[in-house]
Simulated assay, not measured.
Amino acid sequence: MATVQESIDVAVPVTTAYNQWTQFESFPHFMGGVESVVQQDDTHLRWTTSVAGQTREFDTVITEQLPDQRIAWTSLDGVEHAGVVTFESLGAGETRVNVEFQWNPESATEKIGAAFGADNAQVKSDLKKFKEFVENHGATGAWRGEVDPGPVGTTF
């Protein structure tokens, strides 16, 4: 399993950063390789990605969601992965966004890329684009509901 951990400070209140992150269908605006995300219901997402000429479709489920604090997910099919995004208030107008996930690279290209940190570099770039997006546009929507992880909890 490969592990990715990246953080960025954004100059918006924690509620604004969190609210924008809940707008999953906007991810193609700031995530490289993400062609589309379709939110099927409160917890299920259908992703289409294109990386290194390879298009993939897969489903994820949100396993935990606490407004202004965290969103955790796991894959249901496709490449095995799970992770969490947390939001830390650094004051009235600044938030630290932390992304951590684990994934199981399958192809030789994915394994080589993970070994050389390409996945970390992509997430770092995506977070910079998220910062620009949310600082320039604010939140384009919000979902303030909670998803309870239940008695088992999440990996992260």
Rank of each mutant, 00 (worst) to 15 (best):
S89A: 15
E100K: 15
A92M: 05
S89P: 09
K111N: 11
E110V: 05
T109Y: 09
N98V: 15
E88Y: 00
E100C: 09
G117F: 01
N104H: 11
D119H: 05
N98F: 08
G113D: 03
Q102N: 13
E100S: 11
G91L: 06
T86S: 15
V97I: 14
T109E: 08
F116I: 02
G113W: 02
A92V: 06
E88H: 02
P105G: 03
N98S: 14
N104V: 13
F87V: 08
P105K: 01
E106H: 13
L90E: 09
E100Y: 12
A108E: 15
E88P: 00
W103Y: 14
N104K: 03
D119E: 07
V99A: 10
R96F: 13
A114R: 03
E88D: 13
W103Q: 11
E88I: 01
V97H: 04
G117A: 03
L90S: 07
W103P: 05
E100A: 13
V99C: 08
T95K: 00
T95G: 01
A118W: 06
A114I: 12
V99H: 03
Q102A: 05
T86N: 07
G91M: 11
T95P: 01
N98L: 12
R96D: 05
G117P: 02
V99R: 03
I112F: 00
K111W: 07
A108K: 13
P105L: 00
V99D: 03
D119M: 07
E100D: 10
R96V: 14
G113V: 02
R96H: 12
G93A: 06
S107K: 10
E94W: 02
E110H: 12
Q102D: 05
R96Y: 09
E106L: 14
E94H: 06
A92H: 07
L90H: 11
V97N: 03
V99Q: 02
V99F: 10
E88F: 01
A92W: 02
R96A: 06
A108V: 15
E94N: 13
G117H: 02
A114T: 14
K111C: 12
T86E: 14
G91I: 09
A108Y: 09
G113F: 04
I112N: 00
W103F: 15
F116M: 02
A92T: 13
N104F: 05
L90K: 12
A118F: 12
I112V: 01
V97F: 05
A118M: 15
I112A: 00
G93R: 04
Q102Y: 05
V97W: 02
I112M: 01
G113N: 05
G113T: 04
T95V: 07
A114F: 07
A115E: 08
N98D: 14
F116C: 00
F101K: 03
E106K: 15
T86V: 12
G113Q: 02
F87A: 09
D119C: 04
F87K: 06
G91F: 10
G113A: 14
A115G: 13
F116K: 02
Q102H: 10
